[in-house]
């Protein structure tokens, strides 16, 4: 009995792990298969199927994916840089200043962790149209720029920085902003990295709000472009949709494969804090 259990754990568990891994990755493998083979081979698998890049050419000629990619790039850069500035300032305010009402204000900020902008699409659309920001990249990013999650993460990081370092910097003549820039920000680097990776992948993949707020090629991010492209009523064939899908996920997927450790650790770190 005991021996059989050992056999089970030593041989069958790795097999099970690999089997599950193959099942898990198969949708992506399939997308690769369909994208790199002619349309006729999308549904029948044969080792003699010729490789081709035509599907990518076709996808690029049918929809401006390069423009969409550029929009996405501008969007995530804009969101991340604004988030970093706004969240750093606010987190510093909450971490090191006991101003009257700071607990209440902090609690009110944390509401955004639950009620994310996706839920308030209707009213936020009204607000943005009032400011004439509908169909602009700024408009897509604005509701996300002050991020309760970022404030929370950075506040934790700043709070765990030893007070003595701040005192030392103050003795050296640093003011409020000097202390932040020279002491707190450099020491919170791992938190910044984790937050940046989570933020970029979130906004690279975000769909619902950009779909609502954009209606032109000049502002549409990749996900929205892909959503329109891949809709069943548009009637394009599988191989081309697969190629377009791969084009849209490629930058993030490549970044993930290269920096796998950092990605996994960042998601973990951001979640556990």
């Amino acid at each position: 009995m005991k021996k059989w259990m050992d056999v089970f754990t030593n041989y069958l568990e790795p097999v099970a792990a690999w089997l599950l891994a193959i099942i898990w990755i198969s949708p992506l493998i399939y997308a690769f298969w369909a994208a790199f083979h002619p349309g006729a081979y999308a549904v029948n698998f044969s080792f003699s199927a010729p490789l081709t890049l035509d599907n990518f050419k076709e996808a690029l000629s049918q929809a401006p994916f390069l423009r969409y990619a550029f929009n996405t790039l501008v969007l995530v850069t804009l969101i991340l840089s604004c988030q970093l500035v706004l969240c750093t300032l606010a987190a510093y305010g909450f971490a090191r200043f006991a101003f009257p009402g700071h607990k209440v204000v902090f609690a009110l900020m944390l509401i955004q962790l639950m009620i994310t902008p996706e839920i308030l699409i209707v009213e936020n659309y009204v607000t943005l149209s009032r400011f004439r920001l509908v169909d602009t990249i700024t408009g897509i990013g604005l509701p996300y720029m002050a991020s309760a999650f970022g404030i929370f993460l950075l506040r934790q990081a700043f709070k765990s920085t030893p007070r003595e370092l701040e005192d030392a910097a103050r003795l050296e003549g640093c003011g409020t902003m000097g202390v932040l820039w020279r002491v707190y920000v450099p020491l919170a680097r791992p938190t910044y990295l984790a937050y940046a990776l989570v933020s970029v992948s979130h906004h690279w993949n975000n769909f619902l709000w950009p779909l609502i707020i954009t209606n032109s090629v000049e502002t549409r991010p990749l996900t929205v472009g892909l959503g329109i492209f891949g809709a069943p009523e548009s009637g394009v064939n599988w191989s081309i949709v697969s190629a377009a899908t791969l084009l849209s996920v490629a930058p993030l997927l490549i970044a993930f494969l290269l920096f796998q450790r950092q990605f996994v650790q960042s998601f973990m770190y951001a979640g556990i804090k």
Binding site: A21, I25, Y30, N205, G230, L253, L257, Q260
Partner: peptide
Amino acid sequence: VRMAYFTPTILPMIAVANIWLF
């Protein structure tokens, strides 16, 4: 193996849906 399990997480839902539609 770990990478295979984690990869779906970083793909956009819209891309995933495109693949699963097929």
